[in-house]
């Protein structure tokens, strides 16, 4: 092969890898949005978040296969259910751990147990086979010159960005949203303003779990899902969350896009089996050199 042609091909590869990475990064932003609220703002280390995402994937899968409803639509219908689930989990967490000041050891073990129980239950119900959904936009792709835009990546990315923008608007523009920001900064001060911090936190945690419904539907559109896939996302979401600066939504978005691109480049040039290691590298480097993250307070 002449040198010129080889250059073109690797240039094509590079551009496509970066575009694919940006699309993937947009999706990661949706996956991380929930953790950004729970871990970044409420200081609740919800390591079970990926398990809720997988749960969302399986619900989307189950309804899509049996009733043929679009997975994204299913996830929007499921939002209130996941919100209620989130408030319930927070209530248990608050009564059993936060109020007793035992969140660091037993609270973590509690979430770890939840993660584990969800995963094993899904294995018992659905088995360990990969499951996937069917929708019109899975398959075709758009072409712009040398750039391919597969719709199965583009649609989740756009929905993810929409979700992300609405959370950002909700937090900065509404009263409840501002109260959530306030509770993350000074709980006592909020209490003195006659707002109930526990109620605010319960709502915030409910929202964080609700995002998992949408993230789960997006996940199963992008790739086939089996119960243990969630574990790969633990490293990713926390790496993004820490890199972005805890609780900073714009920082989270930038970090998500960055991780998406680097992962996609790694997968293209070194092989997909190396991709999970990227997030850990990001996490360790951030913790070692800039624990406050990119846009940290």
């Amino acid at each position: 092969m002449p040198a010129q042609a080889r250059m073109d091909i690797s240039f094509d590869l590079l551009i496509n890898a970066i575009v694919a990475g940006l699309l993937l990064g947009g999706f990661y932003a949706a996956v991380t949005a929930g953790v950004s609220i729970s871990f970044g703002m409420l200081d609740i280390v919800n390591i079970a978040h990926p398990a809720f995402i997988i749960l969302g994937s399986y619900i989307a899968y189950f309804i899509n296969i049996n009733f043929g409803i679009d997975p994204i639509l299913v996830s929007i219908i499921m939002l209130p259910v996941f919100f209620a689930l989130g408030t319930l989990v927070y209530q248990v967490y608050y009564l059993s751990f936060e109020r007793r000041g035992q969140e660091s050891l037993r609270g973590l073990a509690f979430f770890f147990g939840l993660l584990f129980v969800t995963e094993v239950t899904l294995i018992l119900v659905f088995g360990v086979d990969y499951r996937y959904v069917e929708a019109a936009y899975i398959g075709p792709s758009l072409h712009f010159g040398i750039v391919d835009l597969p719709l199965r990546m583009l649609v989740p990315c756009l929905v993810a960005l929409g979700l992300f923008a609405s959370i950002e608007l909700f937090i900065t523009r509404t009263f409840t949203g501002r109260a959530i920001m306030a509770v993350s900064q000074d709980q006592l001060a909020l209490q003195l303003m006659a707002a109930d911090p526990i109620r605010i936190k319960r709502i915030a945690f409910g929202i964080s779990i609700a995002t998992a419904a949408i993230a789960g539907a997006l996940l199963i559109i992008i790739q086939p899902v089996e119960p243990s896939v969630g574990r790969e996302y633990i490293g990713r979401v926390f790496a993004i969350c820490v890199l972005g600066g805890l609780g900073s939504m714009p920082g989270t978005l930038i970090a998500a896009l960055l991780l998406g691109v680097v992962e996609s480049l790694t997968a293209t040039f070194y092989g997909p089996s190396w991709a999970p290691a990227v997030s850990f590298g990001f996490l360790l480097l951030t913790l070692a050199f800039r624990p406050a993250g990119l846009l940290g307070r």
Binding site: V45, E232, I234, S273, P276, F280, L287
Partner: peptide, 28 residues
């Protein structure tokens, strides 16, 4: 050494991610 100077939860998260990464290394 990398994580224990920070808040306690960072260590926990790093150990969770460590398992995934070491497995990636061994698989490769």
């Amino acid at each position: 050494y990398l994580t224990l100077r920070l808040r306690g939860s960072f260590f926990a998260i790093a150990t969770l991610a460590l398992a995934v990464v070491l497995q990636t290394l061994i698989v490769n």
